[in-house]
């Protein structure tokens, strides 16, 4: 069975998805303070890595990367409610791209599996 990554159209489609996803995140005042002052191009590259991973594309990310990469945000108060917002934006992004509900659930399942690593617990 092919991955969501392949079904979406691979790397080029992920680029488009990053734009939609990151735009939603930046426009969300509940979470956008965690993105203040970050280099947007680097952040977009990280999100591309994240979306590639959760859609089952080629990646070498580990739980340790997710944990290390978010530790400073946990100190700033990052918690489950913020994670929920991001999950919501991810769900909306995939829906906007026309991904079928079953596939969305699969992707959200992968994203959910990173929750404890992201929140460092």
């Amino acid at each position: 069975m092919s991955t969501v990554y392949e079904q979406l159209g691979g790397e080029a489609a992920i680029n488009a998805a990053v734009d939609i996803f990151y735009r939603k995140v930046l426009a969300d005042h509940y979470v956008n303070r965690f993105f203040e002052g970050v280099d947007m191009a680097r952040q977009a590259a990280k999100q591309k890595g994240f979306l590639t991973m959760v859609t089952g594309g080629p990646n070498n990310y580990t739980g340790k990367d997710m944990r290390e990469g978010h530790k400073h945000l946990v100190k700033m108060g990052l918690n489950d409610s913020h994670f929920d917002h991001i999950i919501c934006h991810l769900r909306a992004t995939l829906a906007e791209l026309g991904v079928a509900q079953g596939m969305i659930d699969t992707v959200i399942g992968v994203a959910e599996s990173t929750r404890d690593d992201v929140l460092d617990r």
Binding site: E11, N15, K48, G49, N59, N60, D65
Partner: peptide
Amino acid sequence: SSCQAGACQTCMIRALEGRPTPESQQG
């Protein structure tokens, strides 16, 4: 380097001579 899958762009470097492959410039 980090993701080793062409996503994170941590390993971006420049070809001073010779041409990089098209796949390596995607994104």
